[in-house]
């Protein structure tokens, strides 16, 4: 306010300018960081919550599943196909030459125990659920699964053989807790 103060400022305009520039830059940087930091919680809240993450395992009793039978269970809100494969089905999956596959993967790498095939039942094309798990449903040309939305055919190892889907049915993380008990997730 005092006139003397103003004169001091007036007599050293250059120093004042640089100080102001530095100030403006520093404050701008601080402010931008603050806005970004404040935005993060608002974005991160849309990620899965702690209870959602914790509840993402499902235990399945394999006891009642007969040879050749397929069951569908729900894991993380999605279907998981569990197949107790017959010798013939395992044979069929293993005799295919790797070079004939769209997404080359050995059947041995897709199962922990050859008898049990566990795959996520979501078509890798656009997310429909392929047919073939229930009796009498169309299983496609390779006796696996057939997606009715855009006609993708999967084989008895859940691998894509024909149609628009780009990759094989994914394998979820699972552990055999005992011979007849598996935990998915």
């Amino acid at each position: 306010m005092a006139t003397t103060g103003e004169e001091t400022f007036e007599s050293q305009p250059q120093e004042g300018e640089t100080r102001r520039d530095f100030l403006t830059l520093a404050t701008g940087a601080f402010g931008a960081f603050g806005v970004g930091a404040a935005a993060w919680p608002l974005i991160d809240q849309m990620n899965p919550a702690a209870d959602t993450l914790a509840a993402s395992t499902t235990e399945v009793n394999l006891e009642p599943i007969q040879e050749g039978q397929r069951v569908v269970i729900k894991w993380r809100g999605k279907p998981v196909f569990i197949t107790r494969r017959s010798e013939a089905q395992i044979e069929e999956a293993r005799k295919v030459p790797i070079s004939a596959l769209v997404d080359p993967e050995k059947d041995e790498d897709r199962v922990q125990k050859p008898e049990w095939l566990i795959v996520v039942g979501v078509c890798t094309h656009l997310g429909c659920i392929p047919l073939g798990s229930k009796q009498g449903e169309k299983r496609g040309e390779y006796q696996g699964w057939f997606c009715p939305c855009h006609g993708s055919h999967y084989d008895t190892s859940g691998r894509i053989r024909k149609g628009p889907a780009p990759t094989n049915l994914p394998i979820p993380k699972y552990t055999f807790l005992s011979d007849k008990l598996v935990r998915v997730g």
Partner: peptide
């Protein structure tokens, strides 16, 4: 209470 306990940063919001 789920917002307060489980949602990411829910308590803050």
């Amino acid at each position: 209470e789920r917002i307060m306990r489980d949602v990411n940063h829910g308590w803050l919001i």
